[in-house]
Design a protein around this nucleic acid. Sequence first.
DNA 1: TGGCTGACTTTCG
DNA 2: ACGAAAGCCAGCC
Length: 115
Amino acid sequence: MTQYSAKTTNFFEDVYEVVRLVPRGRVTSYGAIAKYIGSGGSARMVGWAMNACAGKDDVPAHRVVNRAGLLTGKSHFETPFSMGERLEAEGVKLDGDQIIGFNELHWDPALELAL
DNA sequence: TGGCTGACTTTCG
DNA sequence: ACGAAAGCCAGCC
């Protein structure tokens, strides 16, 4: 397998840190993380960073969803079902790939951490 | 050095 | 209301 660069930039670690700070049973969005970090402000970079998070059990990527509360990145998990399964295991109600009550479960770091 | 890619978001048609 | 396209920025070859 292509082992890419082992050295991760601060941007990636920042994303991981924010994702780790997401409370259990809560979810956040790519744009929220990007905005919180402020190092760019592009949600795509968050997704890209998450791609590197693959294999990191310390990073609950299953709590990161798109702006619609849809599990868009589930396909990148070990299995497309693990994402939904983990969320349900934390008490998050899901309708297929859609999070029920996403508005209440949405955890915005820039808002909750309120720096 | 230059160019392609990407798990998103927003706006125009 | 739905569909498609552009914008965004950093990493990798």
